[in-house]
Every structure is written in structure tokens, then in C-alpha cells.
């Protein structure tokens, strides 16, 4: 019988880590159960809702349909990794608070991480482009309105522009 368990070595939120996982285990389950990353949420476990989003080598993925063993050698960023060294909030987290973009909070970590991925490109996007880039996440509380507002606000902040100048 094939070996059921395997050691995985990867970088989690800036730290090299390793653990032994069941080869059938999803990245979501490994991050939640073995590393206590409670920001990685389970909403569907089949890649439909986006609540489990993490960045793998700077790219947003649904971790529920990504095998834990594929994390070998990768850099994984969860919401826990966005905090500064003294627990400071990142600009996008602060914007979610300021723009009232948080309600039940269950989709929030995923949205913030995709927002972070978008912002890291350093590009200026139109509203329609932002809507498309964020469309992989479902939210039932906010109508997405303030989430878009928060991402857009930080996009302009980072580019040192105002919506009027763009």
C-alpha cells in the first residue's frame, strides 16, 4: 500500500516550517489544524466561495482544492502573515475597518488576501477591472460595496493619487 503520510517543508508567513500530513489532506486543513491559521475559512471546500484563499508564491489560491503536499518548497501567506512585526495592521486591513467592509467576517480574510494580491501589482485598475479581480469571492453580507471601496481606497493611497486624477 502506498505511503499515506508525507513530510512537507514550506515557508509560512515568512518562517520555514515543516510537518507530516496525510497525502489526501487539503492545504486548508493543514493550515487550520496543524498551524492554527484560523483565518483560512471553510465555506464550501470545493473552490466556489473563496473563503479559504491564501497566497501561494504571491498568487491567490483556493486552499481547499490545493493539496497540502503541493506546498512543498512554496511560500504561503495567510492573513495572519499580513500583520507587522509588532502586530500592526496592514493598510488593506485598516481600510476594511475604516470603510465598514466587515460584517460577519467569514469572507473577510479571503477578500483581504485577494485585495492584497491586487494591490501588490502596483497597477491602477478601473472599477470594472477591480470587480472582475474580486469576483472569485462570495459574500452574503456586504453586497461587496464597501469591500470594493476599501480596495480602491488603498490602491489610490499606494499610488499617491486621488480618484479624480486617475
Amino acid at each position: 500500500m502506498e505511503q499515506q503520510y508525507k513530510q512537507v517543508n514550506f515557508n509560512l508567513n515568512g518562517k520555514d516550517v515543516s510537518c507530516v500530513v496525510d497525502i489526501r489532506c487539503s492545504l486548508t486543513d493543514m493550515l487550520r489544524n496543524q498551524f492554527g491559521c484560523t483565518s483560512v475559512k471553510k465555506g464550501c471546500e470545493v473552490g466556489e466561495c473563496g473563503a479559504c484563499t491564501v497566497l501561494i508564491d504571491k498568487e491567490a489560491f483556493n486552499s481547499c482544492i490545493y493539496l497540502a503536499v503541493w506546498a512543498e518548497g512554496k511560500h504561503i501567506l495567510t492573513l495572519e502573515g499580513l500583520l507587522g512585526p509588532n502586530g500592526e495592521l496592514s493598510d488593506i486591513q485598516q481600510a476594511f475597518i475604516d470603510e465598514a467592509a466587515v460584517q460577519c467576517g467569514f469572507c473577510t480574510p479571503g477578500f483581504i488576501l485577494t485585495g492584497y494580491e491586487i494591490l501588490e501589482t502596483g497597477k491602477l485598475y478601473t472599477d470594472d477591472e477591480l470587480r472582475k479581480l474580486l469576483s472569485g469571492h462570495l459574500c452574503r453580507c456586504t453586497g461587496y460595496e464597501n469591500i470594493l471601496k476599501a480596495v480602491k481606497k488603498v490602491m489610490y493611497q499606494r499610488l499617491g493619487k486621488t480618484p479624480e486624477e486617475a
Binding site: 483565518s39 483560512v40 495567510t78 492573513l79 495572519e80 486591513q93 485598516q94 475597518i97 467576517g105 473577510t108
Partner: peptide, 10 residues
């Protein structure tokens, strides 16, 4: 509860 929710510690 915003701080708990934007940090994933909620």
C-alpha cells in the same frame, strides 16, 4: 469586532 475579523483571530 472589526479588529478580530480583519486579523483572522475571530
Amino acid at each position: 469586532d472589526a479588529m478580530d475579523k480583519v486579523t483572522g483571530r475571530a
